Simulated scan of single mutants.
Amino acid sequence: MNYFIMTQDERIAEAVVPTGVFDAMRPEWLTPDYQEELEEAILQFDIKPKSENVYLDFLDRPIPLYSDRLKTLIHKFAPKLFAKSVVLADQERTRQDAYWLLILPRIACLSEQSEFYQNGSLKRLVIDEEKVRRHPIFQVEGILEPHIIIDLRLAEALLRRDFIGIRLKKVEQV
């Protein structure tokens, strides 16, 4: 099976940017251990004022957020993923848009062939396919970067639809 890193398309400069995210939530809530706290929270983030805003289907900064359409597709492949609704509010234009925060499993699938810089950041990601098992979407445990990895089936499903603002990069694997 082939795997891909899913990222926000940085070529779209007008993408909405949520602000005040970590004023409303704690960073550790992005892990399965804090699902109960996340369930109880009401999450609404203002967006950075711009002359034009493009609402992408996937935002990865400052936290990964998925459009309703993208969340629906991902849940077809991974129906047990925890999803928390998030509202992005454009105060200037009095507009609100629903997004989703998905809590992904962290899989210890890092291959010994992966390379790191001296500061601990990732130089070359190589995953061990056997350790992934059957997870269609996940994050790699043991790295600083919050890479979101999807399998080939989910990648093909994404590419067959007209999602906006998603880039895929093939991951090396052993």
Rank of each mutant, 00 (worst) to 15 (best):
D97Q: 13
D97K: 14
A98Y: 05
W100G: 00
W100V: 06
W100F: 12
L101D: 08
L101G: 06
L102M: 15
I103D: 14
I103H: 14
I103F: 13
I103V: 15
I103Y: 07
L104E: 13
P105D: 11
P105Y: 09
P105T: 06
R106S: 13
I107P: 03
I107M: 06
I107S: 12
C109N: 08
C109Q: 07
L110R: 01
L110V: 00
S111P: 08
S111M: 10
S111Q: 02
E112S: 13
E112K: 11
Q113G: 05
Q113L: 14
S114A: 15
S114F: 13
Y117G: 00
Q118E: 15
N119Q: 11
N119R: 06
K123M: 03
R124S: 06
V126R: 03
I127M: 11
I127Q: 10
I127N: 08
D128Q: 12
D128C: 03
K131R: 13
K131T: 00
K131D: 03
R133P: 02
P136T: 11
P136F: 01
I137M: 10
I137V: 15
I137F: 08
F138L: 10
Q139C: 10
Q139V: 04
V140R: 00
V140E: 01
E141D: 12
G142L: 01
G142I: 05
P146C: 07
P146H: 06
H147R: 02
H147F: 13
I148H: 04
I148A: 11
I149N: 00
D151E: 07
D151C: 01
L152P: 00
L154Y: 11
L154C: 06
A155W: 06
A155D: 08
